[in-house]
């Protein structure tokens, strides 16, 4: 029952975070919401007994891709600031 409740809460939060990521105005906030989305997806993968996918998602989804997005946004902002 408790396990089931956790699954339901996580799936609702996943949808909510995805909607927030698509609808927020600031790009940086979108990146942060996507990072939180992948972090919750890791928990969902562990519950669904797919630890291999969970490890990959934790490293790539919430670590590497987020920081690359942040750096790209920072450098794009720098170029915009110069003009």
């Amino acid at each position: 029952m408790l396990n089931n409740l956790v699954e339901i809460v996580i799936s609702i939060l996943l949808v909510v975070l995805a909607l927030l990521a698509t609808s927020s105005k600031s790009m940086m906030k979108t990146v942060m919401f996507l990072s939180a989305l992948s972090m919750l997806a890791v928990v969902a993968f562990v519950i669904m007994q797919a630890p291999d996918v969970a490890v990959t998602e934790a490293v790539i989804g919430s670590g590497l891709v987020t920081s690359l997005f942040v750096f790209t946004l920072l450098s794009a902002r720098k170029v915009v600031g110069k003009q």
């Binding site: 291999d52 969970a54 990959t56 490293v59 790539i60 670590g63 590497l64």
Partner: peptide, 29 residues
């Protein structure tokens, strides 16, 4: 560790290699 124990525990070459790249990224940060 994740690369070396890829045949025993979850993980393997792809996540482990990405983790090594993340440590390099931390130094860049």
């Amino acid at each position: 560790y994740i690369i070396l124990h890829g045949h025993l525990t979850p993980g393997g070459g792809f996540p482990g290699g990405t983790m090594i790249a993340s440590s390099i990224l931390l130094l860049y940060l």
